[in-house]
């Protein structure tokens, strides 16, 4: 038996293998990434020199990038695990009842698992911009796209994927909670921003926007205190809440403290400055006065010193979604 066709399709086609290929191809995974065509190399690769080789590699790398960025996307997403609805078109809604779950293939960039009693809508899907509205319920997002391409709009914040795995819950009043398993999520509403790393959670409230992120292992009292600081503006309990947070804060809470630098008032800001300094001293050039004045450059430099990634990525990646939130 000549196996060339079976090996690499180079020999005369074997009728039975061709029939099996045609039959079994229907089981192939749908929504495969597009085939990225490259110029054939074999004919001229024998004589090109190292420089030309390097140049061709650079061109191919660019080609891959361009193809990735600009290949046409389908106008809707495939829904699996739900018999009565197989796709989600732009403008279309998906609503699960109390017994239903669904999985959505987000173009070629990831999946969203939908819990029961969830209502969501596909706002847009095109290269570099995939956008859902979560009206209520819970979704688990696992995204492979580069950061800043997948967004979930909620009544109180827009979540932008900067990592790859998170759970977002929104209740009937529009309040929500994001819990990040891997990577990062950015939460934004009218210029109020929160950066939530893996292992952290962050609440959001209508009319206020995202709260302060906190480590998933903090005490219930710590969590309640953060909620008071974030969402009970003017409450007499604010000072006591900050007292508790500062007293309980550990090194793992540096992200929380960094956010509080801009979320508490004047004199209280100095207390947060002192507490954060115990864990991560401010880098050279970052002064108490500058932080007190809310100097963005100083806050970014201190953020960078936390060792969680530089602030510049956020400043760059968030641009496409600035102004898109309510």
């Amino acid at each position: 038996m000549n196996d060339d066709y079976l090996w690499n399709r180079s020999g005369p086609p074997d009728a039975e293998i061709v029939r099996l290929e045609r039959t079994l191809a229907s089981l192939r995974q749908e929504s495969l990434p597009p085939l990225i065509l490259r110029a054939p190399m074999s004919a001229w690769s024998e004589w090109i020199g190292v420089a030309l080789l390097a140049a061709s590699l650079a061109i191919m790398v660019g080609g891959v990038t361009l193809a990735y960025r600009f290949h046409p996307q389908a106008p809707g997403w495939e829904i699996t695990s739900l018999e009565r609805q197989r796709d989600l078109r732009i403008g279309g809604w998906l609503e699960t009842n109390s017994r239903e779950k669904a999985t959505i293939n987000v173009a070629n960039v990831g999946t969203v698992s939908v819990e029961p009693l969830t209502r969501l809508r596909l706002i847009d899907t095109r290269t570099g911009n995939h956008r859902l509205e979560l009206a209520r319920g819970t979704v688990h997002a696992r995204i492979w796209a580069p950061p800043g391409q997948f967004f979930v709009e909620t009544p109180s914040s827009t979540a932008v994927d900067l990592g790859c795995a998170y759970t977002l819950t929104i209740d009937d009043e529009g309040s929500g909670l994001v819990s990040v398993a891997l990577g990062w999520v950015g939460f934004e509403w009218h210029g109020r921003e929160s950066f939530i790393p893996a292992g952290s959670m962050c609440a959001t409230r209508p009319g206020v926007g995202p709260g302060t992120p906190y480590n998933e292992h903090v005490s219930p009292a710590f969590r309640a205190a953060i909620e008071t600081i974030d969402f009970r503006s003017g409450s007499p309990d604010q000072v006591a809440a900050l007292d508790l947070v500062l007293a309980e804060a550990q090194e793992r809470d540096e992200v929380t403290l960094w956010h509080l630098l801009t979320r508490v008032d004047g004199g209280q800001r100095d207390r947060v400055f002192d507490r954060l300094t115990r864990f991560v001293p401010p880098p050279a050039g970052v002064t108490r006065e500058g932080v007190r004045a809310g100097r963005r450059d100083m806050l970014d430099r201190w953020w960078d010193a936390l060792g969680l990634g530089t602030a510049s990525w956020w400043r760059t990646w968030k641009q496409p979604w600035r102004g898109s939130s309510r």
Binding site: N8, I17, A25, R28
Partner: peptide, 8 residues
């Protein structure tokens, strides 16, 4: 080979 369509 037969489902995914890959060569050897």
């Amino acid at each position: 080979r037969l489902v995914e369509g890959m060569t050897g």
